[in-house]
């Protein structure tokens, strides 16, 4: 590998990314590139140090921290939101539970005792439960669902 090509590929590495085998081989064999890489690393590290030093000597300091905490004490306490994945799992369990009810032996027994009027009431209750669950899910995740709706219904 030529030194020019090495430096070109080395410069494309991400922060803290380890160079690949070819780059390491060249680095091991070429003292000039080794020195250049060391200098570049040193320069980047010293830049970071300069920035960090300017951070600690920032013009704003403790005043902002106090202002933030005063405002935080006035705000309602944040609550952990249920993630969409948890909602999906709960919904799946709910639908699966509804789907297996007709296959339950107890259900057949109850159906025999109370007739079809019981089935209709049960179906209405289960359908209402699923509708409420779906409605609450959409209402609480409208921001996350918006891009999906836009993708599949661009004119909506």
């Amino acid at each position: 590998m030529r030194c020019e090509s090495f430096l070109d590929r080395y410069d494309r590495l991400d922060a803290d990314e380890e160079p690949g085998v070819l780059l390491r081989l060249h680095l091991a064999a070429c003292p000039e590139c080794r020195a250049k890489v060391a200098l570049l690393k040193e320069a980047s590290a010293s830049y970071l140090a300069a920035v960090s030093a300017s951070d600690s000597a920032g013009p704003i300091g403790d005043l902002v921290e106090d202002r933030i905490m005063v405002a935080v004490r006035l705000l309602p306490k944040p609550k952990r939101e249920l993630h969409a994945r948890d909602w999906a799992v709960s919904g799946f369990v709910l639908v699966a539970s509804v789907a297996i009810i007709p296959f339950d032996p107890n259900f057949s027994l109850i159906k025999e005792l109370f007739g079809t009027s019981y089935s209709l009431s049960l179906a209405l209750v289960l359908a209402s439960t699923l509708t409420v669950f779906g409605g609450v899910f959409i209402a609480t995740h409208i921001d996350e669902l918006e891009p999906i709706l836009k993708r599949y219904m661009p004119h909506a």
Binding site: C3, D8, A29, C30, E32, A35, K36, L39, L40, S44
Partner: peptide, 15 residues
């Protein structure tokens, strides 16, 4: 940065 530090690639440099 390499140019400023005077450590740009040397085209004729080969392994």
């Amino acid at each position: 940065l390499r140019e400023r530090l005077g450590i740009g690639p040397e085209v004729d440099d080969a392994l």
